[in-house]
């Protein structure tokens, strides 16, 4: 018996695929020599091109409902598009386990990334572990339409690198106080979609949704904001519709 079979580790002939890595594809750009990049040119692939999946980042403070939103989106979109999820919870498998427990996505469509106490680093400053996870999902599952990258809970300044995602959603909740949109910060101000979650709690915490709406508009200009209660809308309809629009715009009708 070959011990590799028990532990799925690299071994044998070189070059090795990484542990657990399945490589049915060639990765041409990785394997050929190339010239020094022009310092004026963004080395990342241009958005909305090529066959790869749309990548949507979901960030926001601890407890604002990111994982619940991901679960709702999986429920809404899992049957209509090829979907996978990368989670960055600091407790490794916790968010992935939540998704699995709720039965919204099979285990092979969820990857957890450890962030070494630095959730914002993993989505912004050093995105390598997340890129590896996205690539590994695509290698294992074949072409995908949508990859959701869920950040670990962080603060109002945490945003995703454009090298990792195409569009980002920032999730805040009314229980965090109706002042949050007014405080701004890069997440609230620049996210492609702001989700104000847990509107069902507004009466209980004395949050004024019209104030939040007004402040969000002031901060965000034309960028969209949606109000959401996942208790009342288990498929996060406005967010799912927003994503459907992005995916449709990206993939030319066959």
């Amino acid at each position: 018996m070959h011990p590799e079979n028990q532990h799925s580790v690299a071994g044998g002939a070189l070059p090795h695929p990484s542990d657990g890595y399945v490589a049915p594809h060639s990765h041409g750009p990785d394997e050929v020599p190339h010239t020094h990049p022009d310092p004026g040119v963004d080395p990342h692939e241009p958005l909305n091109s090529g066959p790869r999946a749309l990548r949507v980042g979901i960030g926001g403070p601890v407890g604002s409902g990111k994982t619940a939103l991901v679960a709702a989106l999986c429920r809404a979109l899992g049957d209509e598009m090829r979907l996978a999820v990368v989670t960055n919870d600091i407790y490794t498998t916790e968010d992935a386990d939540f998704l699995l427990r709720n039965g919204v996505l099979p285990a092979d469509r969820v990857r957890a990334v450890e962030t070494g106490c630095c959730p914002h680093t993993a989505i912004r400053d050093d995105i390598s572990a997340n890129l590896d996870a996205v690539e590994d999902l695509e290698a294992a599952l074949g072409p995908l339409d949508l990859v959701l990258v869920e950040s670990g809970g962080d603060n109002l300044t945490a945003t995703f690198s454009k090298g990792l995602i195409d569009q980002q959603i920032f999730v805040v909740d009314v229980a965090g106080g109706d002042k949050v949109p007014r405080k701004g910060g890069p997440g609230v101000t620049t996210a492609d979609l702001l989700v104000i979650n847990k509107t069902d709690l507004a009466p209980m915490v004395g949050a004024d949704l019209s104030v939040m709406d007004h402040d969000a508009k002031a901060r965000r200009g034309d960028l969209p904001t949606v109000f959401l209660s996942l208790v009342e809308d288990r498929t996060a309809t406005p967010v799912a519709d927003w994503i459907r629009g992005l995916v449709a715009a990206r993939v030319p009708a066959a």
């Binding site: 018996m1 011990p3 028990q6 071994g11 044998g12």
Partner: peptide
């Protein structure tokens, strides 16, 4: 070599590790 026992870790400071080649 070749590997003859299953991989395990613990209890205590003890681990049985599959090597990269055919061995433990």
């Amino acid at each position: 070599a070749p590997g003859a026992f299953p991989a395990t870790a613990g209890p205590g400071d003890f681990a049985v590790m599959p090597l990269a080649g055919p061995g433990m």
